[in-house]
Design a protein around this nucleic acid. Structure first.
Length: 918
DNA sequence: ATCCTCCCCTAC
DNA sequence: TAAGGTAGGGGAGGAT
């Protein structure tokens, strides 16, 4: 909707509860926390219920967080017990009314958690510093909307969630005053402050003060004692959270009654687009609304009216308290001319400072700078914003409710780690928390960002106790192909991300984990359900004597006698893979793509028929494994009782915690790309080769380059692939309607690719004529393509021996020389040691030889890509080194490398970085 | 050129 | 006792 009408008007309404709130940037923690909650409240009343349920988690505290300091907790408990016994001895008049009660205080409450703790101390209850389902009997929450309390309940396993007044009521009975200011009209013009305690000691902190009180210099965060020194007649009122919620509710009800386009800013602040309300004078409307708010809630409200959101908001500044202000379009310049730039939304202290350095303090001065200049100094968007705002131009529209783009949690206070284990424990808990928030918001994410605050080199202990002090902010992120909210996946990712910091854990002062590129978990589940994953898995398990015939599944699904094996290998494309939307850089969540790592949406592990599972093609198996959070391979290993035969799948296992420590130490001194990839299997040969690769003089360049890129390999324990990597040749074989369905969700660049395919160009991906099949070692139905590597010697050796190419001959010889003829890397390793014949230059058989060798490589890639990506990696490092010495290998390398990347991308959703060998 | 990652700035 | 956390958005610069 256009905002260009001259008659258009927006009004910003604010009720008088604002007047209880400090606008100062006080450091009072409660005040700040309260604002945060208010935002939650405000959002919660928005039109979009999804949005509200999400936002209710924004200030979700760490329910089970902090358990990383068990020792500290124990200490605190002991301290509490000691104090409690002293307290009861000192004052026998206090009855143990809280006997058997153990409270956990949810975040920053009022009364403060310490006050509540004191009540527990005095009246026979217990106080838990950290949430525990076993110990906690009551959760205390302050100032929460219903939605959040509901969520809290769902987190708490049914524990009662009560408000702090429950404690106060219990203690003080009806001695506790239940009044708020709105029910006391006589107090309107008196200085009033809200505070949980009017204790004569006056050590309680003021939460907020009304305007008359502020006139005395009273601010949020002040001690009551100091406030009373400024204003002896100050009236202290207790909180009444129910009333606040009620007011906010009424406030929004009234706004919605008068206007359809309401954009909530906070619980007491909103924008209204009244453009369409023709015939109504915005000023009269604002006046009517304010009156109605006052009548319904007893609170005053302020309104700013102007032709756009920027000016309406600025007008509200003038209107407060309890007034309204209309800025006529013709008076905008006048209004802005002397306005301090800091008053503009979007200008914080940094921008203010930068502009001050240019001698710009007012909007009038800002207007003197050209748009070009501003954009040059502050960037395109920010520059334009400054240019527009200084002129009162604002093109934003009212009522755009955005979906959450990220969910996360961070802790920047009280973070001190003794050792790596301590840190890992913390990260684990952080993942739990973030996972809960994701699930609570009904979303799953693909991009994970780990933020760490590191103490600056020469920074000592911060002035503030346990604060973060002077820190530098570091962050690493990774994007995985599959959106997830699974705690175990989060933990693996976080562990890997943490490894990239190479940080002394003692320097860590803050940690945060943020998840973005969100997709709706519901959508993901629906896709999974729709694809009958659940039904066919459970039905398979129901008849355990029947082995699931993957062919029949494929046939049933495809309904055509296409190459079944190939189909099975690509079955995931229909079951699990999300659409890759990064092509357009957008995150469309509404087109039904996505998949789920949610164990809840598939049969329980114990319901799976292991016989069936084991018979699945490797690719399908690895996907299933990921759906079950990596537990499937464990189960298979157990069922087989011989885990060493499953090295390929064991690569999907997370490293053991103790191993991580060692491995992280490793990665900090070399670039072993697999030290964090979750390999739990000893592979001495490869290790040996890798070590050689990293120590030989001619690869010195590697020492300071991390050899492998995320997200491909590091996340090889994540479910790979996406629709963007669908084998288009397979798509061509699908029935028309199924293909049409898939086309709808296929990224554009793949669409073009497919449409470019003729009906007879099945193998366009493999110009060397090798088909994509789901290979598995020991697979009984090894096609022709596998023959090159089967036998002793395998066929390729004899083929190369009789070749005209000296290089191929040499390579065939190396087969016998190699330590392990089974592995290509071993053979390549031997080849590296040989002096290659420079005369093996281009001759008649050159192309044929290159082709033969490339074919061998491609075959090997297919053979190993799923089960032994390390081997592939080593081979290509060796190849790359060979390519420095030999034109032949250079050509082979260049020819095969794109196929390697395509294959890695298909299976792991990323790229393999082969370091340059000098 | 465009995307991605890391980082900073801002609001509440 | 002390103690900020959550999220959106933009910009720089490297990667592709």
């Amino acid at each position: 909707m256009s905002m260009d009408s001259s008659r258009s008007a927006n009004s910003t309404l604010q009720n008088s509860k604002r007047s209880f709130n400090s606008n100062s940037s006080s450091s009072n923690s409660y005040s700040k926390k309260k604002k945060s909650n208010q935002k939650t409240l405000g959002m919660a009343w928005g039109a979009n219920s999804l949005s509200s349920s999400r936002s209710s988690f924004r200030s979700s505290p760490f329910s089970d967080f902090g358990s990383y300091m068990i020792e500290k907790n124990r200490k605190l408990q002991n301290q509490f017990d000691a104090e409690a016994s002293n307290s009861s001895q000192a004052d026998s008049s206090k009855k143990p009314i809280f006997h058997g009660v153990s409270i956990f205080v949810d975040g920053f409450t009022v009364p403060s958690s310490q006050e509540l703790r004191q009540y527990m101390l005095n009246y026979g209850g217990r106080f838990e510093n950290y949430f525990s389902r076993h110990r906690v009997t009551h959760i205390i929450c302050s100032n929460l909307p219903d939605s959040k309390i509901k969520n809290r309940r769902s987190f708490s396993g049914g524990l009662p969630v009560v408000k702090p007044t429950w404690v106060l009521d219990s203690v003080a009975g009806n001695r506790l005053l239940s009044l708020v200011i709105r029910s006391h009209p006589e107090l309107y013009d008196k200085p009033v402050a809200v505070c949980h305690s009017d204790n004569p000691k006056g050590t309680a902190e003021i939460s907020s003060a009304n305007y008359p009180a502020r006139d005395y210099g009273i601010r949020a965060g002040m001690f009551v004692r100091d406030a009373k020194a400024l204003c002896p007649q100050l009236i202290i009122l207790p909180y009444n959270f129910e009333a606040y919620e009620e007011v906010a509710d009424q406030f929004y009800n009234i706004l919605h009654k008068h206007c359809k386009r309401v954009q909530a800013v906070s619980c007491d602040e909103a924008f209204l687009d009244v453009t369409d309300l023709e015939g109504k004078d915005p000023q009269l409307l604002a006046s009517a609304i304010r009156k109605e708010i006052c009548k319904a809630t007893g609170c005053t409200a302020s309104a700013g009216i102007a032709e756009n959101m920027l000016m309406a908001r600025l007008a509200t500044r003038t209107a407060k308290p309890n007034g309204q202000c209309y800025i006529h379009p013709e008076r905008v310049d006048e209004y802005l001319d002397q306005l301090q730039i800091k008053a503009l939304p979007g200008i914080g202290h940094v921008l203010e400072e930068k502009l001050k350095n240019k001698n710009v303090r007012t909007c009038g001065q800002l207007r003197m700078i050209s748009k070009d200049s501003l954009q040059k100094d502050f960037g395109i968007k920010t520059g334009e914003m400054l240019w527009n705002y200084s002129r009162g131009v604002d093109n934003r529209l009212v009522g755009m409710i955005q979906e959450s783009k990220s969910v996360g949690a961070e802790v920047n206070w009280g973070v001190r780690f003794r050792d790596l284990q301590d840190t890992q424990h913390f990260l684990l808990d952080l993942c739990k928390e973030v996972s809960l928030r994701l699930q609570g918001c009904g979303v799953q994410g693909r991009t994970f960002t780990l933020k760490i605050k590191r103490r600056r080199k020469d920074a000592g202990e911060p002035v503030k106790y346990m604060g973060c002090g002077d820190c530098e902010n570091l962050s690493h992120s990774t994007t995985v192909p599959l959106a997830t909210d699974d705690v175990e996946v989060l933990q693996r990712i976080t562990k890997q991300l943490f490894g990239f910091f190479h940080i002394d854990v003692k320097d860590i002062r803050g940690v945060g984990l943020q998840v973005s590129r969100l997709e709706s978990a519901n959508t993901a589940r629906q896709v999974l359900e729709r694809n009958s994953m659940k039904s066919w898995l459970t039905s398979a398990s129901a008849s355990s004597k029947e082995r699931l015939d993957i062919n029949s599944i494929a046939k049933e699904r495809v309904g055509k006698d296409s190459e079944v094996k190939s189909m099975a290998g690509n079955l995931k494309s229909f079951h699990f893979t999300p659409v890759e939307n990064s092509v357009h850089g957008t995150n469309n969540t509404s087109n039904g793509e996505g998949c789920s790592n949610q164990i809840s949406s598939v049969p329980l592990l114990c319901h799976l028929d292991m016989g069936v599972v084991e018979s699945l093609p490797s690719e399908l198996l690895s996907e299933l494994n990921e759906i079950y959070g990596g537990k499937l391979v464990d189960l298979i290993a157990k069922s087989k009782g011989q885990s060493e035969n499953n090295t390929g799948y064991l690569c999907f296992l997370p490293p053991e915690p103790s191993k991580v420590a060692v491995e992280q130490a490793e990665i900090s001194c070399n670039s072993n790309p697999f030290s964090l990839s979750g390999t739990a299997v000893e592979m001495k040969d490869k290790q040996h080769i890798l070590e050689e690769l990293q120590t030989v003089p001619d690869s010195g360049a590697e020492s300071n380059s991390v050899a492998i890129s995320i997200p491909g390999l590091e996340n090889n324990d994540l479910m790979p692939s996406s629709l963007s990597q669908v084998d288009t040749s397979v798509l061509q074989q699908l029935p028309e309607e199924l293909r049409a369905d898939l086309f709808e969700v296929l990224p554009a660049h793949r669409m073009q690719e497919i449409s470019a395919l003729g009906p007879n160009t099945k193998n366009v991906h493999h110009p060397l004529g090798i088909k994509t099949t789901g290979n598995q070692p020991g697979s009984t139905d090894s096609g022709l393509s596998n023959n090159l590597w089967i036998g002793n010697p395998p066929p390729w050796v004899d083929k190369f021996k009789v070749s005209n190419s000296l290089t191929l001959k040499l390579f065939a010889d190396m087969y016998y020389k190699a330590k392990s003829a089974e592995s290509l890397s071993s053979i390549l390793q031997c080849t590296v040691a040989e002096s290659l014949h420079p005369l093996d230059a281009r001759c008649g058989t050159w192309n044929e030889a290159v082709h033969s060798f490339s074919e061998l490589l491609l075959e090997y890639i297919k053979l190993k890509i799923v089960v032994d990506i390390e081997e592939i990696y080593i081979c290509f490092r060796l190849l790359r080194r060979l390519s420095n010495k030999s034109e032949f290998f250079l050509e082979v390398y260049n020819l095969v490398f794109p196929h390697l990347q395509a294959s890695v991308d298909e299976h792991y959703g990323g790229n393999l970085h082969i370091p340059l060998n000098k």
